[in-house]
Amino acid sequence: MTRVRFFAAAQEAAGTDAADYDVATLGALRAELTAAHPALAGILQRCAVLVDGARVGDDTPLTDAQTVDVLPPFAGG
């Protein structure tokens, strides 16, 4: 089970700050998130998604992943 944490606009679109998912890859997680939270569809493609603190590709396995962070672009200085 992987803990997914949502921040800023992603948190608002998901309606929660965190949820647990059991999926094989980051790509499968993206599909699951979009299906579970349709409001994330437009935001997720612009988000940085970190798996245990690192940016990785959609084919990355999540079997040993502890945390996935969904971080929308931030504005400001």
Rank of each mutant, 00 (worst) to 15 (best):
R5G: 03
A31E: 15
A65T: 02
F74D: 07
A36R: 12
A9M: 09
G77P: 02
R3N: 12
E12A: 11
P73L: 09
V56I: 09
H37T: 14
T63P: 03
A48N: 11
T34F: 02
V51P: 01
A24T: 13
L50V: 04
M1G: 13
L29I: 08
F6W: 05
A31F: 04
D52F: 00
G57N: 11
C47V: 10
T2K: 09
P38K: 01
L29W: 03
T63S: 14
V56M: 09
V49Q: 10
L71T: 05
G77T: 10
A65L: 05
L62D: 00
A36Q: 14
M1E: 14
D20C: 13
A41S: 13
R55E: 15
A9F: 10
P38S: 08
A48I: 12
R3I: 11
Q45L: 14
A18Y: 10
T2V: 15
L71A: 02
L50Q: 07
L44I: 06
Q66V: 14
R5P: 06
D17E: 15
R3E: 11
T25W: 01
V70W: 04
A31V: 15
L71D: 06
D17V: 11
D52Y: 01
T25H: 01
P72N: 06
A10G: 04
A14I: 04
L50N: 03
R55A: 15
R46G: 14
D17K: 15
R5Y: 06
T2Q: 07
A8L: 01
F6S: 03
L33K: 00
